[in-house]
Design a protein around this nucleic acid. Structure first.
Lengths: 118, 118
DNA sequence: ATAACATATGAACAGTTGTTCATACGTTTG
DNA sequence: CAAACGTATGAACAACTGTTCATATGTTAT
């Protein structure tokens, strides 16, 4: 006929499978948070910042110099990393030092590297 | 004076540290690939697709129905997931089934979940 | 061969994102 | 206090991304 069905006619999913899928699927909020976390890792500048912080804490201008980018651009991205709780900071006079918040960062990046190296 | 220095005047990074950072920093191509991988995880639709595939392989229309989205939208995203080698597919007549490529997917998502759960 | 179905894909459009620029904030020094 | 420095931030703009829509491709059945 002329009218398309919204989905395929013969469904391959069974009731038990649908239930099982819905059980394992995280709630809306967790899913959103998870996606936001991966979005943070999905940017070259932010990944580079995390990599330079692997070695030691650094101030904003040092990171900017190491990555050959403007202070403003780095500061904006450090804000994103901080909101995602991937880095923390401490002030020392005029200078603000940033450092990795915990070891999850290394683990997640490591797993990603494992994948792209087959 | 009136002219701003490009970077802070007193650098906190030392030569040894800079060398060490540059040593650990992956090459341009690996960094790019890593970022592209995380970008793939940074979308609600794609994460949802991966979650439903945790249970079993599914055809495109089943995924579309489970996520209440159009066949086209799902197909576009499956293409992205396939290019990232996170899913694979097999054809069976008119139907194409998609399934997880390997266990890195579970590991990476698991690590992400660990982080957001503090 | 034709029709119907399942999937794939190109174009377009809206929403999002990262950088730059200008400027504000917070701290130290004279 | 004012000036200088290091950092933070809002606005604007270009580049990118995900969905929709229309349509094409590939397979099966009549």
């Amino acid at each position: 006929m002329e009218v398309r069905a919204e989905y395929c006619e013969e469904h391959h999913v069974h009731k038990e499978l649908v239930d099982s899928v819905k059980l394992d699927m995280p709630d809306e909020e967790s899913l959103y948070d998870l996606v936001e976390l991966f979005k943070v890792f999905g940017d070259t500048t932010r990944i580079r910042i995390l990599y330079v912080l692997f070695e030691s804490e650094l101030c904003v201008c040092d990171i900017a110099e190491l990555l050959s980018m403007s202070q403003s651009a780095i500061s904006h991205q450090l804000r994103v990393l901080k909101q995602a709780k991937l880095v923390r900071s401490r002030r020392e006079g005029k200078t603000v030092f940033y450092f990795l918040a915990d070891d999850h960062v290394r683990t997640i990046i490591g797993q990603g590297m494992d994948h792209i190296n087959e």
